[in-house]
Amino acid sequence: MENITSESKSVLCTLLDKNDQSKYVFFTQKKPEGGINIGFTNGEGVWKTHLSEENLSPLMKTFSLKSTEDYTLKLKCACKTGKAFVEVQEDSAVLHLGLEPTDSSLTLSKLTDSEGRTEVKDLLFIMADSLTQQDNRGISSFSPIKSLQKRGTEFEVRNQLKGPSIAVRKRLPGDSLINPGTRRKKTATGVAFDEDD
């Protein structure tokens, strides 16, 4: 858990393998000591690489970017628009950041099973924390008092638009539905005659 909190914001999105159309969860993690981890997983295998500040600088010059955050946002945008895709090989994978073969690409190494399980576990906690933060932002922006005040004004405006309101009399038990204001008549039960009298 300490590992997750020490790493700052992550970018999460999905990627496709162009060969078999299988989906992967793509993630980036900015490291506090500098550079970023880039990886993806299908839940079973994990492929990952670390880009140091020295490795990032030529990439940022190529794309005319100013910061590491700009680079991670470019990666996320490429994933969302379908311009990023992966080619998985036996012990590595290639992440392509464009539709042309000449576009930028990164080689990622496949992690061992134990490293992969740890990475997937960390990724699940990052996702859960991200969802919790989104929920908390939604809750803090919701105020019952403000929403009641808004509802009250909505109803007042609607009533003013309708014109004068007509008083509706409450239907009492036993009142007729067809002819309001009159009581329903009970069905006759008849008179029971005793033969003894």
Rank of each mutant, 00 (worst) to 15 (best):
M1H: 08
M1K: 07
N3I: 08
I4H: 01
S6D: 12
S6H: 07
E7H: 06
E7C: 04
K9A: 06
S10Y: 02
S10E: 07
L12S: 04
L12W: 01
L15A: 13
N19D: 11
N19I: 06
Q21V: 03
Y24W: 10
Y24Q: 05
V25L: 13
K30C: 12
P32M: 06
P32S: 08
P32I: 01
E33C: 01
E33L: 02
E33R: 02
I36R: 06
I36N: 02
N37K: 05
I38K: 00
F40V: 05
F40N: 08
T41R: 05
G43F: 05
G45C: 12
W47K: 05
H50N: 06
L51Y: 00
L51G: 04
L51M: 07
S52C: 12
E53H: 07
L56R: 01
S57Y: 01
P58K: 01
P58G: 05
P58V: 00
L59S: 02
K61E: 14
L65G: 03
Y71P: 10
T72N: 09
K74N: 08
K74P: 00
C79Y: 11
T81P: 03
G82L: 04
K83W: 10
F85P: 00
E87Q: 13
V88Q: 13
E90K: 10
D91L: 11
S92K: 10
L95Q: 02
L95V: 06
L97H: 00
S105G: 07
L106I: 03
L106N: 02
L108K: 04
L108I: 07
K110I: 05
T112P: 15
S114K: 10
S114R: 02
L123P: 02
M127T: 09
A128P: 00
D129I: 09
S130M: 02
Q134T: 10
R137L: 11
I139L: 14
P144E: 03
P144K: 04
K146A: 14
L148P: 03
R151M: 08
R151W: 13
R151C: 11
T153D: 13
V157S: 12
R158N: 08
N159W: 08
Q160S: 12
Q160N: 14
L161Y: 01
I166S: 14
I166E: 15
V168A: 07
R171P: 13
P173G: 02
G174I: 06
S176P: 08
S176K: 09
L177G: 11
L177R: 13
N179H: 14
N179F: 15
G181T: 07
G181Y: 05
T182F: 06
R184H: 01
T187C: 05
T187W: 07
T189A: 10
A192L: 10
F193E: 14
F193Q: 15
D196T: 12
D196F: 13
